[in-house]
Design a binder for these strands. Structure first.
Length: 477
RNA sequence: GGCGCGGUAGCCAAGUGGUAAGGCAGAGGUCUGCAAAACCUUUAUUCGUGAGUUCGAUUCUCACCCGCGCCUCCA
């Protein structure tokens, strides 16, 4: 089914078709590795993950790149304050980022790249910008000459004149021709890490990193006959539209004379108590914070995924509780259809409902990734199937079709598998031992002992459910 | 001030020019030794406010009110 995507460039939902049939070249602005990512950051990455997973299920080969910025002002300041090298510091938070992505089941981009591994490419690109008159050197720094790129501002809808008058002058940037010009290469300052360049020691500006890595790994692979340098999708958080993505466009298009990206996809913000979650405001939760409070990464992912990406999501612990409960419903259902002994029959109406749910889910996702509507389709099927199970209509012939819908759902949402149980958890053997004792007590109608054992298991995080006719099941809470 | 997103039940949230999906929570019931899970019933005469267009608007138009974001590093 054809995907329709909102494109910031045109401010409308458009049918998506990649330049090269069957292959999507996509770049996502990742994290600056100066601290743990918070769940606001991960909202964007879960959104991107869902987009990429959906494209994959539609048969596309998704050639994706995500960068990790490993040199910037904050990192330099923090790493030196911590008495560690920039590289060491970046490695630590890059590893933490990878770990959090795994917990949240974010599939890694095909290429995860570090800015400092591409410095020579950045220098070369800046040299070309200087040579073509789009950039100039001042006192060892290089700036992009905005006056040379009239198309600036198209993505964000910014008025250039307004920018010019409104711009504040950074103390570092006194040498710029115009206040609105942005830095491509920063001259070295005492005590900072540096790389050699034609303009002396220094380091790249933030914006040039993404442009150059995207162009090297994806733009250069544009298919025959299409504009060189053009990629299919560029994604990131909405706050990146201006100035970051605007600057990226300028840096690339000034040289290639071709569109940098055909679709710009921006994920809306996560709010906390009605305000943007940000490191600066200090109102953030990391995945680790929430895990310490007993929440599961899969529930975090569910919450982040359940609100369509173009809508601001106000994060609350109550919302996370709700997500936990909703997800539990899906898991219990999956357990139920896997484990319940079924009669050798088929409820054909139910299989039709499964097919309808599957179609509705795909259609919802195809319409600009409407995850809320996709979930509704799944819950409709869950209720229909539970009703059939209760009534004894759910037969062996229904198991595979219904499970297939859940599998298709989880291929995108990736929430059904259980999280790793806590390290302190009882071993499965210990759990089974206690369950067996409880079963024995129940057969003896020793309810006091049975209930005590159930409480003991409950305290250890194991939820016990009896099944009619004897036996039971359990799960981690 | 400019640009953008949004205001739908207690909470989260979908959606359409024709009379309100789904989830969570609550209440009652069925089932259960008791639970849990599941199922059934129930919870918005109404979609920020006002006006307009229309046979009919939550959905279109205009105005206004409110929340948030970007305009500076930021997912």
């Amino acid at each position: 089914m054809e995907l329709r995507l909102y494109n910031t460039l045109t401010r409308s939902v458009e049918p998506f078709t990649p330049l090269e049939p069957g292959r999507v070249r996509m770049y996502t602005c990742g994290l600056t590795a100066y601290d743990y990512g918070h769940i606001g950051n991960f909202r964007t990455f879960v959104g991107v993950d869902i987009l990429q997973r959906f494209l994959a299920t539609q048969g596309y080969d998704v050639d994706s790149v995500m960068n990790i910025t490993d040199v910037d002002d904050k990192m330099i300041a923090r790493s030196s304050a911590a008495g560690r090298s920039l590289r060491e510091y970046a490695d630590f938070y890059a590893a933490a980022f990878t770990e959090d992505c795994q917990r949240l089941r974010i599939r890694p981009a095909r290429h995860i790249v570090r800015a400092t591994d591409f410095i020579p490419d950045m220098v070369a690109w800046i040299e070309r910008l200087v040579a073509s008159g789009h950039a100039y050197e001042r006192e060892g720094s290089v700036y992009f000459r905005l006056a040379s790129f009239p198309a600036y501002g198209r993505l964000s809808g910014k008025d250039l004149d307004g920018l010019q008058s409104g711009a504040r002058v950074d103390v570092d940037d006194y040498a710029k021709e115009e206040a609105r010009d942005f830095v491509l290469w920063k001259a070295w300052k005492e005590g900072e890490p540096f790389w050699e360049s034609p303009w002396g020691k220094g380091r790249p500006g933030w914006h040039i990193e993404c442009s150059v890595m995207a162009e090297k790994l994806l733009g250069a692979a544009a298919p025959q006959g299409s504009p060189q340098g053009t990629i299919d999708i560029h994604a990131g958080g909405t706050d990146l539209i201006f100035p970051h993505h605007e600057n990226e466009i300028a840096q690339v298009e000034a040289l290639t004379q071709a569109p940098f990206a055909r679709y710009w996809v921006h994920m809306e913000f996560l709010l906390v108590n009605g305000e943007k979650m940000s490191k600066r405001l200090g109102n953030f939760y990391t995945v680790r914070d929430l895990m310490e409070k007993g929440y599961h990464p899969s529930a975090i992912r569910y919450l982040l995924a359940s609100v369509p990406y173009r809508r601001q999501l106000n994060f609350t612990l109550e919302g996370l509780d709700q997500a936990t409960s909703a997800l539990e419903r899906l898991r219990v259902f999956q357990d139920r259809i896997r484990r319940t002994p079924l009669p050798d029959t088929t409820d054909s109406g139910l299989n039709q409902a499964a097919a309808a749910a599957s179609d509705a889910m795909v259609a919802a996702l195809a319409e600009n990734l409407n995850t809320a509507e996709a979930l509704a389709a799944i819950f409709d099927l869950v209720r229909a199937a539970n009703t059939a199970l209760d009534a004894g209509h759910f037969g062996a012939g229904n198991r595979a079709p219904v499970q297939a819908v859940l599998d298709a759902f989880d291929e995108i949402f990736a929430v059904l598998a259980h999280d790793a149980p806590p390290a302190s958890a009882l071993s499965p053997e210990a759990v089974n031992q206690l369950l067996a004792e409880r079963e024995a007590a129940r057969r003896m109608r020793d309810w006091a002992r049975a209930d005590a054992l159930r409480r003991q298991l409950d305290d250890a995080g194991v939820l016990v459910e009896d099944i009619k006719g004897g036996g039971g099941r359990w799960r981690w809470k």
